[in-house]
Write a protein that binds this DNA or RNA. Structure first.
Length: 548
RNA sequence: GGCCCCGUCGUCUAGUGGACUAGGACGCAGCCCUCUCAAGGCUGAGAUCGCGGGUUCGAAUCCCGCCGGGGCUACCA
């Protein structure tokens, strides 16, 4: 049985196996690391996808009732084999994924998520992660931002196998160091007629655009320089000559996407300064670096046809799979942006004291879900659970409350020792012993570490002495006397206070409230901590000041 | 405007024609616990599944139309 349209010359992928694990209703066999595969009573066969086409064709003799897969498949590159056995195994090339940020500012939260999905996918498949710096924007790229990218990803615990800092066989990994490569490819396109020189000035282009705007027509480059290039001009850019027809591809999240080429104007691929544009450099590098799966934000979806045209014109294989992740939006339902959303900046979370593993957990759930009720995942669990076919299509709204909740969950799971260590930078003005002693009391009260400081503000600033009635003054005085001869630690302080309370028959609320007000103000950690965290003399002085 | 994508509680989502009186989580409300604040436990409110047509004995799930939202429309990435 040979499926209808497997790629020319591409050997079909044979997946033979017992029909035992078959989902009878659909005729699909789930194969780990591949996805759902069409099953036949005894034998399973899958077409090797054409380059970049991951959808599984329905075999001519499919089981009755079989339908096309709800989601397209991620099929492995290279020869794939699955042998008859109760346990199905698959031999295939290792996937290669890439993260390609541009060093034009702080690290974007969306980049962090894209990196995360890349890493989760690669780790689960035994693939490699490539970090490439897309610094072709001379005006905005700054070397110091590159370090911010490294730091940000490292902070999250997301590492890469190849990159500008660690090297690798496909380098260099900065686009600014690959200019010769792009030049070479541009020449090829020029020679084959797939691209042409454009001498138009920015002013002329602006005029064209304005004219289109005025006539309320969609703007596309006029191809003036293709038809009738001006003479005597020296400066030029290079444009791709968009071929006729349509471009189709399969996105693993969205399925088949089809775009009429006529709706795309000839894009510039080499700027007049000789540098490539993103749309040119990116696909060339993806091909040269043998990237198999491209994860990126949905905002790149409209770029994809252009990039595929370039690949086609160059005779390169398309990446095996494209995965466009839903954009992350703010409360206003707009894409997170520097201007309107302070929460885009990855560094913010580090500064406020979110635990990187908690942020990773939250980000994983923003646009993906495991299909179970599990909300808290270790990194290893995420690697195991992550499945591209469960990535959402609709954009995801960033939810600060849920992030805080997840972060709180992680904080509470820390040991006292660990929490104290992590807290130290956020309480740098406090003695180390104080931080260590405070950790247990803080644990259940912190949405993020940066809050510790305000919870312990009374250590630095004494409260205004409270107004107490005579009975309360007596309580505070008695407490102070009792505390004078007690070991200064939460445990003994608590015992002493409880003893006093029982002796006098005072309720906790009545005794503790005036003490708390005298020592810390309205809200503070449990009273024995509140007291013991303060130096004994200071605590007693505050009690004396309130009640004599 | 054009092209593309998307549309289930406020939010993240489960759901792939009957088990859906639409499930979970965050948030919200109430109660319990309690020395304040938290944490934790319990209970609850909250979704005419964007709208309108169809197909079907039966639709959140399939089809068509509409509406709404978003992304892109740079010699930015």
């Amino acid at each position: 049985m040979v499926p209808a349209d497997h790629g020319q010359g591409e050997p079909p992928l044979h997946v033979a196996g017992r029909a035992q694990p078959v989902d009878e209703d659909h005729g699909w066999l789930p194969i780990p690391a591949i996805g759902m595969v069409q099953i036949h009573p005894i034998e399973v066969e899958v077409a090797r996808p054409k380059l970049g086409h991951g959808r599984l064709p329905l075999p001519p003799d499919a089981l009755p009732g079989a339908t096309s897969p709800a989601r397209p498949l991620a099929l492995p590159p290279g020869p794939s084999l699955c042998r008859t056995s109760l346990l199905c195994w698959v031999m295939r090339d290792r996937p290669r994924v890439r993260m390609a940020p541009s060093p034009t500012g702080y690290v974007h939260l969306g980049s962090a998520r894209t990196m995360l999905y890349n890493v989760l996918f690669a780790r689960a498949q035994g693939g490699r992660v490539v970090l490439r710096i897309d610094d072709t924007d001379l005006g905005r790229s700054e070397p110091e931002y590159e370090q911010a990218i490294f730091d940000g990803f490292h902070w999250l615990g997301l590492d890469w196998d190849e990159g500008p800092d660690v090297g690798g066989p496909h380098g260099p990994y900065r686009q600014s160091e690959r200019l010769d490569l792009y030049r070479e490819h541009a020449v090829r396109l020029l020679q084959s007629g797939a691209a042409y020189r454009c001498f138009c000035t920015p002013e002329e282009l602006a005029a064209e655009r304005a004219e289109a705007e005025r006539r309320r027509r969609p703007y596309r480059y006029s191809r003036r320089c293709l038809v009738d290039p001006p003479r005597y001009r020296q400066e030029f850019a290079v444009r791709l000559r968009v071929p006729e027809g349509e471009t189709t591809f399969t996105d693993l999240v969205r399925g088949e996407i089809r775009v009429e080429n006529a709706t795309i104007g000839d894009p510039v691929i080499v700027k007049s300064n000789g540098w490539p544009t993103y749309n040119f450099a990116s696909p060339v590098d993806d091909a040269l670096m043998e990237i198999t799966h491209v994860f990126r934000g949905e905002e790149h979806l409209p770029n994809t046809p252009v990039q595929l045209m370039i690949l086609d014109a160059l005779g390169y294989r398309r990446p095996q799979a494209l995965i466009h992740l839903p954009v992350i939006v703010g409360k206003d339902r707009k894409k997170l942006s520097k201007r309107h959303h302070p929460e885009v900046r990855l560094g913010l979370y580090q500064e406020l004291g979110f635990l990187p593993e908690a942020l990773v957990n939250y980000l994983a759930l923003l646009g993906w879900n495991p299909g179970t009720d599990q909300e808290i995942f270790s990194f290893e669990e995420l690697v195991r659970a992550f499945d591209v076919s469960r990535v959402q299509r609709a954009s995801a709204m960033f939810d600060w409350d849920k992030l805080e909740w997840i972060n709180g969950q992680y904080i509470r799971r820390l040991s006292d020792r660990e929490l104290a260590d992590r807290l130290r930078p956020y309480l740098a003005d406090l003695p180390e012993e104080t931080v260590t002693a405070a950790a247990p009391a803080l644990k259940e009260r912190l949405p993020y570490l940066g809050r510790a400081s305000e919870l312990l503000a009374y250590l630095r600033t004494p409260p205004a002495p409270p107004e107490l009635d005579p009975e309360q003054r007596e309580m505070v005085r008695a407490a102070r006397e009792r505390l004078e001869e007690v070991d200064w630690a939460p445990g003994p302080v608590e015992s002493a206070l409880e003893e006093l309370r029982r002796e006098r028959g005072w309720s906790r609320g009545r005794l503790y409230t005036p003490i708390r007000e005298a020592v810390a103000g309205r809200v503070s950690p449990p009273l024995h901590y509140t007291l013991a965290l303060l130096p004994r003399d200071e605590a007693l002085a505050r009690l004396r000041r309130a009640a004599g």
